[in-house]
Amino acid sequence: MDNLASENLAWIVLFGHIAIIVAGGFITVLSESLVRALMGLILTLFGVAGLFFLMAAPFIGLMQILIYVGAVSVLIFFAIMLTNAWPGGDESGNISGKKVIFAILASIAPAVFLGSAALRTAPPSIFVPEETEVRELGRFFLEPYILPFELISLLLTVAMAGAVILVFERRKKK
């Protein structure tokens, strides 16, 4: 009885988060104003962070907020502020039915593939969340997975350098 109630509560919380994520996604896609779309994106990111909390990975959840909400979205916002966007872009015309269907299919597809893959090869922790120590997490990244980890950081550095170069090129043109 007790177990059931707590399980129900857990389901409610889980689907609550999922609802937030989906709602955020729809706001992102459907809103005309870029800033509102960004708000939807941020809502989604918060929902995902909540899911991390549910999976007993608060560190990852907080990193999600710190990096994606605190830094990436803010930079996107900065870009919006500087680019002078108006609500009459290429995609503001009427949407045909065919397009809608394709769009829905395209959005469901990753969910189906990734979901089935995740369910089939699920690690045991997906049912009984276990909190991983931050220290172990660090070890994990820096010992067995050091190469991909470093490659990702290299990629980011290259991307940053590329952005800087692009900006300078644009300035030179003037």
Partner: peptide, 26 residues
């Protein structure tokens, strides 16, 4: 009492910038 207290504070204080952006933009 959480093991990630400091990260939590750093993460949530960062959200303030967002408020500043929205206020400035709107």
């Amino acid at each position: 009492n959480t093991n990630v207290g400091l990260v939590l504070i750093l993460a949530f204080t960062g959200v303030n910038v967002l408020a500043l952006c929205i206020a400035g933009w709107t």
